[in-house]
Amino acid sequence: MYRMVPTSDIVLTQLRKGVVEYCVLACLRSGPAYGLELAERLGSDSSLLTSEGTLYPLLSRVRQQGWVTTTQVPSAVGPPRRYYEITDEGRAALETFLATWSRFTTDVRTTLES
């Protein structure tokens, strides 16, 4: 059996799954944003994204799930910007996640610190 001590990158990759999409939804609560703006709201140095580009497959998925919609808005600097906006379904999904997450993190902290 192949065994190894996971690197922090491997741990992060696993922790991001099922969490980062809700962080994206949370960033859209304050209003619609285009890609680069959203990447900035998430924080360029944050551990949430491996790199800015990894945001886009995720955005495509949450759009297909109906949690965000996209609208093309004319831009002064070039082609139209694709604005992402959270839907009612997205807000409901985020609410459910928040309630669950709060309980989950409390339990994790209690266990890790015991």
Binding site: Y56, S60, Q64, R82
Partner: peptide
């Protein structure tokens, strides 16, 4: 395929904004 097309288009837009 849909995710692929959307991702490439969105990254292209990101690059336009960033280069500006």
């Amino acid at each position: 395929p849909r995710e692929r097309a959307e991702t490439v288009a969105a990254v292209r837009e990101h690059a336009v904004e960033s280069l500006a």
